[in-house]
Design a protein around this nucleic acid. Structure first.
Lengths: 194, 194
DNA sequence: AAAGATAGAGACAGGTCTGTATCATTTCAA
DNA sequence: TTGAAATGATACAGACCTGTCTCTATCTTT
């Protein structure tokens, strides 16, 4: 196989597509630009991916894996500190919000861009959020919270709200608000038995 | 002026565009479809609007006014009940979530669809959220809350989170979660003096 | 070193989109 | 009733998009 760059053509395409799809959007990013910035011929692209939708799906799967791993790693590190609760998630999020190229959640953005049609992309986006909620519930249970499922549903609302507010305002202080709200979930549960 | 329909051509265009822009998205909705469903000629369209972007801006301004009025009316009605707090906002939102053609917040969707370019549409979207936050702060102050600005910032996070969760899951039960979280803002402030 | 596979570059077809121009018809006003 | 303006329908130009095809150069393998 021809290997002019350290990465394979497929990986270069995926890397370029990840950057452009997230920064500019799915529809706004054309194949021509992806192959130009990847230094790849069009036919080489279509030998690696059946269609643009295929590339989008692969981008989302890869981003899901990377995002979840980063989130899990950050949260587990925070939970190692005694007394830590769900609010450590806000710190992980805030670090993300502070990145200069932060532009919201790729999966929310995909849902919005895809419209009412329920394509594969939307399914991947929903699956991402479902897996995140499952993880949050698992952490809530590990923390000994009484109703992990309810807590996770509320935490998801807070997390998504923080992401969208960070995207809308561009102000990372949203992370602090998110932290307060997640901490309140603990306090509220302690004071209201089911 | 030619008046075959009860509404003027401009109003018919705006009505059709509002429906399609919200349901299908801004980019996914073409001028051809708007004029076809409005029963209007292309030149008549371009006599009323300078460009598609002009129509989008007008759609957003109109939707902003209508949405704010509806929200204000619902909240004020809820606040008339003694003892009511910010959580009445969740009831207004839940009624919205239950509409069959609910597809999230048009202004969040606009922000996502517009990408990194800061066009007029993005400015209108941000202005909408700013005005909403101002109103929430005003209500918080009226309710005698200690820090209306902080409360409004947190309420905005919760509100946006509820909207996105309702859009993502399609489950109106999100309204109930939103209600609990907004009510907690009151309880939390009462127990934590600045 | 020679032959075959693979790569990049670019032309091309077919589709969609925005915005303009044309033309016959209808509506309003004098 | 007659002339002027507005409307509907449609064709058109220019741009962009996806996906296919061709040609040449380079790399791999034998």
């Amino acid at each position: 196989m021809t290997q002019s760059s350290p990465l394979s053509a497929r990986d270069r395409i995926l890397q370029t597509a990840s950057r452009l799809f997230y920064r500019e959007g799915l529809r706004a990013t054309g194949i021509d630009r992806i192959i130009a910035e990847s230094g790849v011929a069009k036919m080489s692209f279509y030998r690696s991916f059946a269609s643009k939708n295929d590339l989008i799906a692969e981008f989302l799967r890869q981003r899901h894996a990377a995002w979840m791993q980063r989130f899990r790693t950050g949260v587990e590190a925070g939970l190692a500190i005694p007394g830590a609760g769900l609010e450590v998630m806000a710190d992980v999020l805030e670090a993300w919000f502070r990145e200069p190229d932060f532009r919201g959640c790729a999966f929310i953005n995909t849902l919005v861009e895809s419209g009412p049609g329920d394509g594969e992309e939307v399914a991947i986006a929903r699956a991402h959020k479902a897996e995140l909620e499952t993880y949050v519930a698992e952490v809530a249970e590990r923390l000994g919270m009484l109703e992990p499922a309810s807590v996770a549903a509320m935490a998801m609302l807070i997390i998504e709200g923080a992401i969208v507010r960070a995207q809308m305002t561009g102000d990372p202080v949203v992370g602090g608000l998110c932290r307060i709200l997640l901490a309140q979930l603990k306090a509220a549960e302690a004071s209201s038995p089911p």
